[in-house]
Design a protein around this nucleic acid. Sequence first.
DNA 1: GCCCAGGAGAAGG
DNA 2: CCTTCTCATGGG
Length: 290
Amino acid sequence: MSKVLEIKNVKDFNTDHIFACGQCFRWEKQNDNSFAGVAFGKAVNISYDANTETLRILNSTQKDYDDIWEDYLDLKRDYGEIKKEFSGRDKILKEAIDYGQGIRILKQDKWETLISFIISQNNHIPRIKKCIETLCENFGQEIAGADGKKYFTFPSYSVLAELEEEDLAVCKLGYRSKYIIETSRAVNADGGKKLQETEVNDVNFAYEYLTSLCGVGPKVANCIMLFSMAKWEAFPVDVWVRRVMHHLYGIDEKDMAGMAEYARQNFAPWAGLAQQYLFYYIQSKGIKLK
DNA sequence: GCCCAGGAGAAGG
DNA sequence: CCTTCTCATGGG
């Protein structure tokens, strides 16, 4: 009953790199090596065969591919050209690219990305995933996946805006519960209009709006712009990127502005992608540079 | 027990 | 403007 869509001639693609590089939190690797997850209200399994350069999406339709997955997986972009340019410019980046060659920057739902990265602050990735899953199970809608398992959509801002802080206690969000309630109410107040507009406006407009929301600072705002709006000028600086920029690029550990400036000058116009190669490289190797 | 995590807000200087 | 403190939680 579940359809399998096959997309041929897909290059620079690796599901482990894409779904485990810290940009998304709702994809889980299955026994058959596919990744199961939910995005834009659809539960699918995604797998990739490098030998035949074939992408397979289980439980999807051609219409969903056209409407959702092609943009979500950023399949229209030629990463090969960018990687070639980067590798010629920068030896450190070249090594990071060799390690995470199949990374692609997803174009995720703005609202889900906003809340997910509020949850991410001062938190570990496995626990972030658990918090988000619990949030979806409690306040999202149940949908069917390809494997008969239960999946849940990400809860809408109109639903979360109606909650009180104690309703979120089940999610173990700590002090972040307050941020989520306040931000949900702020977004719900104008029906998500401004959040929607951030995508078509420049980085300054998006940054100003996002950081006006409770629980959104410079780092989270940059993650939202990069992972849900394809604003690749964004260069999120977290503790891992700080370590990279300090120990591998020699920038003062506290000089966040200097790190952003270095990225602008040396990684443009794809600073966000460079950041993701570096993050995945340093983080998944477990290198503690400090 | 201690330290840390894809940080941000508040308080104090 | 800057720096430091505090904020829950669970895994290592």
